[in-house]
Design a protein around this nucleic acid. Structure first.
Lengths: 117, 117
DNA sequence: GCGTTCTATAACCTACAGGGAATTTACGTC
DNA sequence: GACGTAAATTCCCTGTAGGTTATAGAACGC
């Protein structure tokens, strides 16, 4: 049922409306109307976004009278996180290089000495 | 220059070819031809993918004779990772719930006792 | 200068994504 | 059963993504 592939997960996360919906759902369950309220967008558009999130396994829906409350399903995010973690060494190395570069710049700029200001 | 927005980062990561290119670049710099070689795809198609990755700030390119070696730029991945981390508590909670469910199931299935096999 | 190699660009096609308007379905209430 | 509300579905439009082929541009060897 839940696709769970990185393709659909990342594609679902690429839209700001959908990320905002997930952020809202992190605060708790919500109906479609409640989710649609903050957006300058019609209800069918939100329903489409929810369908994308559901097919990506990022949300699940239950019934409760006419409402169709949505709940956050975070496991595809875990999968995405796992993929990203493989590259952690690279960004940490690049940030470290940037740090030492900034240190060099500071060390070689006398106009930043305390007695100058 | 580097967009760095989550929109473009996640969109770039949503394509398996592009993720494979990043994985290749994690092993070191590579030219367009080298990157294209593993794929059943023409060179212009790869160039397009590289343009997407470049606009997302995920790679950078230099000149070296006719070659245009690509290098991995991981900082957008750090940004994406930061966004995902906000949801860590959710997937960990859900996995914990799954774990305890599995424990319950095992506890109540006598046909999995050692003297059974 | 000339051909060769590597890469980028242009033009084109097909499929799909994101949005709106209108309608339909599902459920609860009176 | 009629009505009202919540959500999904349908149809339409526009833009863009991903692929192709063909062409152009940049850098080297001769």
């Amino acid at each position: 049922m839940k696709t769970g592939s990185l393709d659909t997960t990342f594609a679902a996360l690429a839209d700001p409306t959908r990320r905002a919906i997930l952020a809202r759902l992190a605060l708790g369950e919500a109906s479609v109307m409640e989710l649609a309220e903050p957006f300058a967008m019609t209800q069918p558009a939100i329903s489409k976004h929810l369908k994308v999130l559901e097919r990506a396994g990022l949300i699940s829906r239950s019934r409760e009278a006419q409402r169709r409350p949505c709940r956050l399903e975070a496991s595809p995010l875990a999968e995405a996180n796992l993929w990203l973690e493989k590259y952690r060494q690279f960004w940490e190395a690049q940030f470290a290089r940037l740090d030492s570069l900034l240190e060099e710049i500071q060390a070689s700029s006398p106009n930043l000495e305390p007695d100058q200001g």
